[in-house]
Amino acid sequence: MTRHPVIRKAFFALALPLLLLTAWWVATANSTSFFWPPLSEILATFPETWFNGRMVQDVLPSLARLGVGFALAFVVGIAGGTIIGLFPLLRALTEPVMEFFRALPPPVLVPVIALFTGYTGSVGKVVTIALGCLWPLLLNTVEGVRGLEPVLIDTARSYRLSLWRRMLYVVLPGASPRMATGARQALSIGVILMVISELFGANRGLGAAIVQFQRSFAVPEMWTGIILLGLIGVLLSVTFQFFEKRVLAWYVGQRDIERGA
């Protein structure tokens, strides 16, 4: 095998997906089952299914709702988590409530939220996504702020750093690794909720489209939807890692040195 690092990396990233696709291709090549159409047929259906307007009418609105919901949760989670993390009294007060809401599986909120915001509009779906994303962000931020190195806090105090400098240069960067953990969890919950929020009373959207294909027995189209969803997941994860690597370069570097790597 080649020693070139980029090619090596690409090989490891793509080997298993290619293997799985090949297996799928071979296993379904002569399939006559209605529910397991050949992969070749599914791939052939892909362009006509998604590139004739569905991208704009279904996929983009879903992603937009995910983006808005996630952004709301990000802002509220980090602001709220920082404040709660800084004040032990506030934490003691809010902890039981937060644990209660975190224990609720987010999908059960869908019908409840729909009662207040209506079944068909975007608002209910955005609220669902935002609420689901909020808890991992909030709780991880609280932990991140609480776990700040006490010597750093003493250092900031002894140099008399003002409140906003302490926030900007000490608290937020110090808690950022935990915030990133929360954001990663929130993103995967957000994708799930993006789909689930469309299963009830929506006629447009990626999730709604998959359900409609399934109900109208458009099986190859349904499979293309599932593949598209998976691809979106991969794309989001890669984008997230890209930003994480830049913002948390110091954290990764320090951790590697501490591990003796």
């Binding site: 250092t155 240069y169 954290y251």
Partner: peptide, 8 residues
Amino acid sequence: GRSLFPWM
């Protein structure tokens, strides 16, 4: 090691 800000 812990009194210096590692992100700076």
